[in-house]
Write a protein that binds this DNA or RNA. Structure first.
Length: 958
RNA sequence: GCGCGAGUGGCGGAAUUGGCAGACGCGCAGGAUUCAGGUUCCUGUGCCCGCAAGGGCGUGGGGGUUCAAGUCCCCCCUCGCGCACCA
């Protein structure tokens, strides 16, 4: 006898689940159930009449089309948004939910290189595979709205947005971006003066071009960039790890001055910080963004260099009030002034006798660097440049540096102060030079101690404060006219003095730098830019798209040699690079030169370009005349601060993608193409699915699937291995394929399990053994509504008993609240309780009352939509339940007549009594005292106090 | 070092404003069905003492506020994440 002979024919098992799931997925497609109508424009067809409902835009961070397929960790967020979207649709919203693909970029290109196929081929294949895998989950997406960023019909609009950015400048008076035409107009009218003081039209066309180009929000700049020969491309700061390697591939990254495209994101720094207050985002992400932008306020101060009439060192400080305590200066090793300032020979000691500090000879000796200053500097630079990452970590923050033999003059008191180079000052922040104030700065204190430099406190520390810098507030001391002022007043006073005496100015600096926007890769958006002998020229919109040329040799030239130079693959497409055009337009834009040969830009845009605006294209994906119809955008935006109602994705995009997308959105907002100042109103970070991973004695990961457990020990091929938990994936060899789960349980079980494991924003370990729990729930749900022997529904038209109805309506109220707050795990627990109760009802009555059956099915529908649709049909409905109203609780049935209340004596629960709802304190106390057990305990005791919380608790304090 | 988050049964996890700690699921134990195993169903299950009634202990550790603390305050420990010489 085999199992299947004994199992009832219509039991809900994997086989039946698979049948049901395929049938409903097909039906949803055939009937276009999840085609979301726009209120106007191209996608306005609205057979269900839902376009005028309130709108809700629910968005996932779209995936890149990976070649290895999905594992069960990937769709966690996708399932979460699908449950939420289905719930909101049933609450009467017109819900937009779709899924596109982030198809350009390194992962796709590297996959193509590995497989030896063209990325356009592999990308298309991978997208098809992923669409198939995602479809099997039953996600209710509008299939028309999922573009791939590598489609020509998509990236022509990425190029279009680039042109809009290129053709804009930031008007800091109006605090917004404006078209460059308006800038030209200001120059022409004289409202704005040209730097040369001449009328704009008297300038030569090259001068006009250079002037306007210097204002643009997209510009070519030669500056130190992150050059990664191992990838053959330059990278944005955000793509480089703190230890100087590429985030992708972990290759070393070198700073090299190279001509590259930059986007002027720093112009938006203050708005990017300020508008974090108008969105509903996790604090952690908002802090990460604030940190990354790194705004500090303070002042620039200029220090004259002794013996160089023409030279000044400019520093940035957040504590200008401490300038009287600046006893030395430090330049970053790469600072351009180092060579000019370094003295020819070491000075004598005599000028330092007043300071009673260590003699100059000892400074020279700290790092054993003898010989003339220039040699010491040279050797120090070698020492710093040769530090490996490992050394940097093990050495930690030990200070090092050398004296330049030169002195600056402290502008507030005329004191000569020695100048050092040291690697604790970074070229990339502020001006790359500092005034060192050891009395008020820990790092400077440490350096001063090491070199025996004088320490002057300029803020009075608290009593008994000794041996370290004091960073707190207090009255200024040793600071001339500032003495007695607190820090804030002293700052204001010294800035005023510095500005009046031309020694400095108030200033704000940022850690954020402009965004390096070009890559030397093939698989990306070409720039809509050509060059003549003077520089870049934007192509007119009519020439879009600039199609990526077909190339067989698309591979980047990578190298181990740090001195190798970047070589964009597109530069090898010579037929494409050279192009004859007649560009119509103004001379100041480089246009209007007649028909001639130009050279195309051969860099491509970074991966982030396509993902900066994809959510906008979801709104109007087939529009060929506009990125998005403004009326359509406004309808979905619906006067919120952020367009997207809910955006779900991983924390790893907390800075990069989310910052870049906000920046582009703000430019588009300034130029009037979108109606909200922010793209994403509510952001939610989903956790990860973790899984056991195993390492062998060599520390290598082994296939988790093949590990055996014996007596709590783990073995792989007979060898002992150790277990740890980590993010599920290829690298830890602990991935679980969704197909295996479909095969054994079905997609509804997988969905339900992933939602039941824990709160959506928390990472949780995958445990195969737990899955049966949710599968049993679906099985019981099925059995409660359908006879397993016949497959026929057993639903009665009789009214449910009072207890069942009360439970039903309590469940409805709780599930609604949980769904709203994305607490799917507790919503599911509530449904379990109701279903368990129903099991008893069915056992007694042989059927389920319809009112309970229908409500339960509708509540299950967002979570396990296939089985819900099937049950909905079997209990007598012909239409999909996707647009049915989510059940509403009856307030009358939420009320209880009486509640059980714990009675405490001395804070310990000793009994429970039943109290009518709404009873007063006295009644509570009387009923409690009537309880035999309580009466016993209170007999002979003195009740010092009685606490009554009506309906909650009674406590006799003895 | 700084910032953010977390620490609750054997496991995943529940617990509006401080008000019955451990919902729900897994696992485990006992029972029904079964020749048997598996499936399905029922009952029990924080730990300790006790036949039981009952009692004691219990939310990383220590202290405090309170009639009452997982929740609030102070100190400490561990783990995860982010930033990291940012002037």
């Amino acid at each position: 006898m085999t199992r299947s002979d004994e199992t009832p024919e219509h039991r809900y098992n994997a086989q039946l689940a698979n049948e049901i799931e395929q049938r409903w997925q097909n039906r949803w497609d055939d009937e276009r159930v999840f085609w979301t109508p726009n209120r106007m424009g191209l996608l306005a067809e609205d057979p269900r009449g839902v376009a005028e409902r309130p709108s809700m835009f629910i968005l996932d961070m779209f995936p890149y089309p990976s070649g290895v397929g999905l594992h069960v960790g990937h769709p966690l967020g996708f399932i979460g948004t699908d449950v939420y979207a289905r719930f909101q649709r049933m609450q009467g919203f017109n819900v937009l939910h779709a899924m596109g693909f982030d198809a350009f970029g390194l992962p796709a290109e590297q996959f193509a290189v590995q497989t030896g196929q063209h990325p356009s081929v592999t990308t298309e294949q991978n997208i098809a595979t992923m669409r198939r895998q995602l479809r099997a989950l039953g996600l209710a997406h509008d299939p028309r709205r999922g573009p791939s960023t590598a489609d020509e019909s998509y990236y022509r609009w990425t190029q279009w947005i680039f042109l809009k950015i290129y053709n804009s400048w930031y008007d800091s008076d109006a605090d917004r971006a404006r078209p460059v035409e308006e800038l030209v107009e200001e120059f022409r009218s004289g409202a704005r003066l040209t730097p040369q003081g001449l009328p704009f039209d008297d300038l030569g066309s090259t001068e006009q071009r250079e002037l306007i180009d210097s204002y643009r929000l997209a510009f070519v700049d030669e500056s130190p960039v992150n050059w990664c020969p191992g990838l053959g491309t330059v990278l944005a700061n955000e793509e480089v790890t703190p230890d100087g390697r590429s985030e992708r591939g972990n290759f070393p990254v070198y700073k090299r001055p190279l001509k590259q495209w930059m986007l002027g994101i720093t112009a938006y720094a203050d708005r990017l910080i300020a508008d974090l207050d108008i969105v509903d985002w996790p604090d952690s992400i908002r802090n990460m963004q604030r940190n990354w932008i790194g705004r500090s306020t303070g002042a620039y101060i200029r220090f004259p260099v002794e013996g160089h009439e023409d030279l000044e060192i400019e520093v940035f400080t957040t504590r200008p009030d401490t300038v009287f305590g600046a006893t030395y200066m430090v330049l970053a090793p790469e600072h351009p002034l180092v060579n000019e300032i370094t003295a020819n020979e070491w000075p004598g000691d005599e000028i330092f006798v007043d300071w009673e500090s260590s003699p100059i000879d000892s400074w020279k000796g700290v790092f054993g660097m003898v010989g003339p200053p220039a040699e010491a500097v040279h050797r120090y630079r070698e020492f710093v440049g040769g530090k490996s990452d490992l050394e940097r970590e093990t050495e930690g923050r030990d200070k090092s540096g050398v004296f330049l033999g030169a002195f600056a003059i402290n502008p507030v008191n005329g004191e000569p102060i020695p100048i050092f180079v040291a690697d604790y000052v970074l070229m990339g922040y502020g001006t790359g030079a500092i005034m060192a104030v050891p009395g008020q700065d820990e790092r400077d204190w440490e350096f001063a101690e090491m070199f025996g430099l004088p320490i002057v406190r300029t803020v009075q520390p608290p009593d008994a404060w000794e041996g370290e810098a004091y960073l707190g507030d207090g009255p200024a001391i040793n600071s001339g006219f500032l003495d007695g002022m607190n820090v804030a007043d002293a700052k204001a006073a010294i800035i005023e003095w510095l500005e009046a005496n031309d020694h400095g100015t108030a200033a704000v600096t940022y850690k954020l730098h402009d965004w390096l926007f070009s890559r030397q890769r093939y698989w990306g958006e070409p720039f809509p830019i050509v060059y003549d002998e003077h520089g870049p020229i934007a192509l007119p919109e009519s020439m879009l798209p600039v199609a990526l040329p077909e190339m067989t040799d698309f591979q980047p030239r990578t190298s181990d040699d740090p001195d190798a130079l970047p070589e964009p693959p597109l530069s090898r497409a010579s037929d494409w690079v050279e192009v004859e055009l007649d560009l119509d337009g103004p001379k100041w834009a480089g246009q209007g030169a007649g028909r001639q040969v130009y050279l195309r830009e051969t860099n491509t845009m970074p991966q982030w370009a396509g993902s900066c605006w994809y959510y906008l294209r979801y709104l109007d994906p087939t529009n060929e005349d506009a990125m998005v119809d403004p009326a359509v955008e406004a309808a979905w935006a619906d006067s919120k601060a952020g367009l997207v109602d809910l955006y779900v994705g991983g924390v790893e995009h907390g800075v990069l993608h989310l910052l870049y997308a906000r920046f582009w959105h703000k430019v588009l907002y300034d130029l009037g193409y979108v109606s909200t100042p922010e793209p994403f109103q509510r952001l939610f970070n989903q956790g990860y699915i973790l899984a056991a991973a195993y390492t062998d004695q060599r520390g290598m990961h082994v296939e988790a699937e093949e590990v055996e457990v014996r007596d709590g020990e783990f073995f792989f091929e007979g060898q002992g291995v150790t277990r740890e938990f980590g993010k599920m994936g290829k690298s830890l060899k602990n991935a679980v394929a969704p197909d295996d789960i479909y095969r054994d349980y079905g997609a509804d079980t997988l969905r339900l399990y992933e939602m039941f494991m824990g709160p959506l924003n928390v990472s949780r370990p995958w445990n195969m053994a737990d899955i049966v729990g949710v599968h049993r729930f679906l099985q019981r749900l099925w059995r409660n509504l359908v006879a397993e022997e016949t497959g026929v529904a057993h639903v009665s038209e009789e009214r449910a008993d009072d207890e069942t109805r009360r439970l039903l309506h309590r469940t409805i109220a709780a599930v609604r609240a949980d769904m709203e707050s994305l607490s799917f795990n507790t919503a599911i627990a509530r449904l379990f309780e109701l279903n368990n109760h129903l099991t008893h009802v069915v056992q007694e009555q042989g059927s389920t009352p319809r009112e309970v059956a229908e409500s339960l099915v509708l509540m299950v529908a967002p979570l396990a939509p296939h089985i819900a649709e099937e049950l909905w049909e079997r209990i007598g409905h012909s239409e999909t339940l996707a647009y049915e109203d989510f059940p509403e609780p009856d307030p009358e049935l939420l009320k209880e007549d009486a509640v059980e209340v714990p009675v405490q004596v001395g804070g310990k629960v000793r009994s429970r009594i039943t109290v009518p709802v709404g009873a007063d304190d006295a009644t509570h106390e009387r009923l409690a005292r009537e309880d035999t057990r309580i009466a016993e305990l209170l007999d002979g005791a003195t009740v010092r106090k009685t606490i009554v919380v009506p309906g909650r608790l009674i406590n006799f304090v003895v």
